[in-house]
């Protein structure tokens, strides 16, 4: 089975929902004929360094402002990032998965980083959901949640085919490669390549570009195959939309080291007091 996937590496206008929704619709129109899933970065509708704007631009899951995106999902599955006003009154850094003119799944960010004061505004999500699509199971992880190995464990166990990582990766640190790429990006790529390679799924890494108050987002969104190969990538620094086809038949069986029942038992039985 083949899956056509599009990656929209955009430069959102900070706190300008209307403008960002228009941009999303433009891109949807552009790719809907040639692709089955279109993925945007974390907080794609809002931008990242929102401060008090977080409160101002939050949307409930049934917000009428999001209707054009919902309706466009008649043609193509769409994954967006936004500030969600939850039914509990809390704000979440969320990813919405739209398909067949409905909101099929919401994944909220699970672990909040202290970076640029976000915890003050956001509450943390408390569940991990799979998306059962016509192409098999998909998973969504937001930002630095990917750094917690236990977060991807349920995805590995259930044999997902594609892991979508929606990020706002800030360019930080000097890598020793001397190739002009930020250390934060180089380190993350090593991790994602290892995940894809050893746990046998595609990783769709979706980052954004641009500056917000001096903070740079690097871009470099890409698709990594289950053999650990980067199949296609967006450029660094520049807005870009790429489309490619994933061959979902190319999966290897899980290895013996993924014997979870044994691993759970060992983790449970270990003594943490030294």
């Amino acid at each position: 089975m083949k899956l056509g996937v599009s990656l929209a590496q955009i430069y959102p206008k900070l706190g300008d929902l209307k403008c960002n929704i228009e941009r999303h619709i433009e891109i949807i129109e552009e790719v809907k004929e040639k692709s089955q899933i279109l993925i945007f970065p974390e907080l794609s509708l809002t931008g990242s360094n929102l401060m008090d704007l977080t409160v101002d631009i939050a949307q409930t899951s049934d917000s009428s402002l999001l209707r054009p995106i919902l309706e466009a999902s008649k043609y193509i599955d769409i994954v967006i990032g936004l500030v969600e006003l939850g039914e509990d009154g809390n704000l979440y850094d969320s990813a919405f998965y739209y398909s067949d003119s409905s909101l099929k799944s919401i994944q909220r960010k699970l672990f909040l980083t202290s970076y640029i004061g976000r915890p003050k505004y956001f509450a943390s999500g408390n569940r991990i959901d799979f998306i059962s699509s016509r192409w098999g199971k998909l998973g969504i992880v937001i930002g630095q949640d990917i750094l917690n190995p236990l977060v991807i464990l349920p995805f590995i166990r259930s044999g997902i085919k594609v892991l979508i990582v929606m990020d706002n990766n800030v360019s930080v640190g000097y890598s020793s490669s001397g190739t002009g790429i930020s250390k934060s990006y180089v380190d993350l790529m090593s991790l994602l390549t290892a995940y894809a390679r050893f746990y046998s799924f595609y990783v769709v890494y979706m980052n954004r570009v641009g500056f917000e108050d001096g903070i740079n987002f690097f871009g470099g969104s890409c698709v990594i195959s289950p053999s650990g190969e980067v199949l296609a990538s967006c450029p660094y620094f520049e807005e870009s939309v790429i489309t490619l086809e994933l061959d979902l038949e190319t999966f290897r069986g899980n290895s013996t080291f993924l014997n979870f029942d044994k691993a759970f038992k060992l983790v449970r039985d270990i003594s943490y007091e030294y």
Partner: peptide, 23 residues
């Protein structure tokens, strides 16, 4: 002190371009 002048130039040139044109 770790340093990568190529990365730094990449970021700073774009920083100047972006943070002026935005206004």
């Amino acid at each position: 002190i770790p340093f990568d002048p190529i990365f730094t130039k990449n970021i700073l040139v774009r920083f100047i371009r972006d943070e002026t044109k935005k206004f």
